[in-house]
Simulated assay, not measured.
Amino acid sequence: MIEVEVKAHAGNFNDVEVKLNEIRAEMIGLEHQKDVYFNAPDRDFAETDEALRIREIPDTSGKRIILTYKGAKMDEVSKTRKEIEVDVSDTENMASILENLGFRAAATVEKKRIIYKFKESIISLDEVLNVGKFIEIEREAREGEDFSQARDEIFELFKKLGIEDGFERRSYLELMGVH
C-alpha cells in the first residue's frame, strides 16, 4: 500500500475543528500514541529516508500494537511512501526480536491524536510532545497507481480547512532533531 500524506503546522485546532464540522467530517477517535523508532544495523534510516517503528495505542481492550515499515518518500511535496503494517501482540518481545537482529531503538515519539474521516481521507490533529501541533491528511493508493490525484485532493482539502501554507515534509523524528 502507498500512504499519500501531507502534514502542516497548526497554531491551534479550534478553527480547523469548526471547518471540519462545516464540511461534515466525522470524528472517529481520540488516541494517545507512543511510537518507538528503530534504526537498522546495515544502514541509517535517516539517510535512506525509511522508518521502522512499534506503535502502541491504548484502547478499551488494553492496547493495540502495530509494527510499521515506511519506505523513502516518493515525491518532493508530500510524505507519500510505501507503508507496510502488521499487528503484533507484545511490544517488549517485538522490540527484543528487532534488537536481537541488530536493530537499535533510536527515539520515542508520543502524541495525542484526534482523528476525523472525510470521504477517502483521514485527518489527524496531532499534538506531539516536545514538537508541536500538526494537521495530517492521508489516504491510501495502490502500488503502481498514480498517487498525484490523491495528493492534489489532499491539498484541496487543506484549502477547505483554511490552510494554504506551513506544510512540513520532515517526520516527527526529524523535527525532534533525531538523525
Rank of each mutant, 00 (worst) to 15 (best):
M1L: 13
E3L: 13
E5L: 08
K7V: 07
K7S: 02
D15R: 03
D15P: 03
E17I: 07
L20A: 07
N21E: 13
I23Y: 09
A25W: 06
A25E: 09
A25C: 04
I28Q: 05
G29V: 03
L30D: 04
L30F: 06
L30N: 06
L30M: 03
Q33E: 14
D35T: 03
V36Y: 09
Y37V: 01
Y37I: 01
F38T: 08
N39C: 02
N39W: 06
P41D: 00
R43T: 14
A46G: 13
A46Y: 15
A51Y: 08
L52W: 12
I54M: 03
I54Y: 09
I54E: 04
I54T: 03
E56M: 09
I57M: 07
D59Q: 02
D59A: 00
G62I: 01
K63P: 04
K63L: 08
R64C: 02
R64N: 12
R64E: 15
I65A: 11
I66L: 12
I66P: 10
L67I: 00
Y69V: 01
K70T: 13
G71E: 15
G71C: 11
A72I: 01
A72Q: 14
E76L: 13
V77C: 09
T80Y: 08
R81I: 04
I84A: 15
E85D: 15
V86E: 02
V88D: 02
V88R: 03
S89A: 11
E92T: 07
M94C: 14
M94W: 06
L101R: 01
V109K: 05
V109T: 08
V109Y: 08
V109L: 06
E110C: 12
I114S: 14
I115W: 12
Y116A: 13
E120Y: 12
L125Q: 04
E127S: 12
V128I: 11
K133W: 01
K133Q: 06
F134Q: 01
F134L: 00
I135V: 13
E136N: 09
E138Y: 12
R142E: 15
R142A: 15
E145I: 11
F147I: 10
F147E: 08
A150Y: 07
R151D: 09
E153N: 11
E153S: 09
I154Q: 05
E156P: 01
E156R: 10
E156A: 04
K159G: 04
E164W: 05
D165C: 04
D165S: 15
D165F: 06
E168F: 00
R169K: 12
R170Q: 15
S171F: 05
M176G: 02
G177N: 10
G177A: 12
G177I: 03
